[in-house]
Design a protein around this nucleic acid. Structure first.
Length: 425
DNA sequence: TCTGGGGTCCTAGGACCC
DNA sequence: TCTGGGGTCCTAGGACCC
């Protein structure tokens, strides 16, 4: 009897056209119709139904370039509804957890599952069951790729989505790998972006199979450790681990404005809002930040305007999760980088070098005041969580937000707002 | 007119130390 | 005129992902 741990088996579960599918769950009339979901400020297309993909509209395309075509095709255009998608994502992930003890939530619509424990079962059948359950419990269709590592599970998922009726594909067998990789464009591999793809193609390496079979030392020399790891994974070794708990190392909040902003007060207002949002997230993951980065920039697409792009970091004496303190720090940063006369288009903040909130406090800083403030933050979070975002706000956030952009086509937040529940007549 | 937002990892190069 | 070498830490910037 061998006590050796079985080799890993990964399944990548990926929701099909996730944002579109979420919308369709609550409005079945959208089914089979061409539809797209726009980025935060209705600027770019960030989710496309199959019908839209068929029109050749790429991911991330600026809306204004395709407006005419979309209107002609009578496409349904929606603003993004992140509260809805976030909530639906949680439901999908909870469902997936029923099927394995080890899983990594990789993004809002993807999760890696480890399935080697279930090898005695027919894994394809098992995945079909997963797929059916997710659909039944949440209404969201998913595709599943089964493989010996993450990179190949991405390949398998791609095949599952595009070339199967079942939505499940297994690439564990060597012969299957040979066949699939030979026809898989190198640029579609996870981790091969535009630059790398261009370079590889120029070298004549245009399929995943060709990349798999290059010399490993050569791969390292030309494409660093990243390239070496890629090649190893294509060969079937598992180099990227499952990361079950991922505490973020930084938290960002930034947005481009609805109009160009010149006024320092308005900028401070926006920055206070971003800071508040980021601090809330920070406390949600039980972290504290050790520093802050604040940046401002003009619109690089407006060639006619003088350009400005500047940021500044601010280190804290002590890790903090206190919104009031961090807003003050952000104010100091803004004072330093604000320059009069520019038309600003975007501002953002980043909470840096996060550490666990339990991180040992230096006694001199752990005063009654900081303890009281920490209690205050908790109270604010509890109230805002139960009564809605920004029920309690900080003065610096301001009341009017003339810089904010609208989302003109947002659907109701069916699952998270009492006022917006689905009405059954 | 209109071009997202939130992340990670890796490398190169400078500063600094002995 | 000669002008070390190795190590670490930090930061900026590039590339990639969803």
């Amino acid at each position: 009897m061998s006590l050796r741990k079985p080799d890993p088996i990964y399944a990548l579960v990926d929701c099909n056209n996730f944002y579109c599918s979420c919308e369709r769950v609550f409005n079945p009339a959208l089914e089979k119709k061409p539809m797209a979901v726009l980025s935060n400020n209705d600027g770019c297309i960030v989710a496309r139904s199959n019908e839209i993909k068929a029109l050749g509209i790429p991911m991330g395309a600026p809306m204004f370039q395709y407006k005419e075509l979309l209107e002609k095709k009578r496409a349904i255009i929606l603003s993004s509804n992140y509260q809805l998608y976030g909530d639906m994502s949680q439901r999908v992930m909870e469902t997936l957890r029923q099927f394995t003890p080890s899983m990594e939530v990789y993004s809002i619509d993807e999760a890696f599952l480890r399935l080697e424990e279930f090898q005695r079962l027919d894994l394809i059948k098992y995945c079909l069951e997963i797929r059916k359950t997710v659909k039944q419990w949440t209404g969201i269709p998913v595709s599943i790729g089964i493989a010996p590592n993450k990179t190949l599970s991405k390949v398998a998922n791609h095949i599952a989505k595009k070339h199967t009726k079942t939505g499940v594909f297994d690439i564990c067998k060597r012969s299957t790998q040979n066949e699939i990789l030979a026809n898989f464009p190198v640029g579609n591999i996870w981790g091969v972006g535009r630059q790398l793809s261009k370079k590889l193609n120029e070298m004549g390496i245009n399929t995943a199979l060709k990349l798999r079979d290059v010399d490993i030392v050569w791969a390292r020399k030309h494409f660093t450790v990243v390239g070496e790891r890629l090649v190893r994974e294509l060969r079937g070794a598992s180099c990227l681990e499952l990361e079950e708990v991922i505490a973020k190392k930084n938290i960002t909040s930034s947005k481009s404005f609805g109009k160009l902003v010149t006024d320092k007060k308005e900028l401070m207002n926006a920055i206070a809002n971003y800071t508040t949002k980021a601090c809330h997230k920070l406390r949600l993951q039980n972290s504290k930040a050790q520093g802050l980065y604040v940046y401002l920039r003009t619109n690089p697409f407006r060639r006619q305007d003088p350009q400005y792009d500047n940021g500044i970091t601010y280190g804290f004496m002590e890790p903090s999760d206190d919104t009031t303190f961090i807003i003050q720090a952000a104010r100091k940063c803004l004072e330093q980088i604000y320059s009069k006369g520019y038309k600003y288009h975007k501002a953002g903040i980043m909470l840096l070098d996060l550490v666990p909130a339990s991180y040992k406090q230096m006694e001199m800083f752990d005063t009654e005041e900081t303890q009281a403030r920490s209690k205050l933050m908790k109270t604010i979070d509890v109230m805002n969580n139960s009564m809605g975002q920004d029920t309690i706000r900080f003065a610096a956030q301001g009341i009017d937000h003339p810089w904010a952009r609208k989302c003109e086509h947002r659907t109701p937040r069916y699952t998270t707002n009492w006022d917006e529940l689905v009405k059954v007549r």
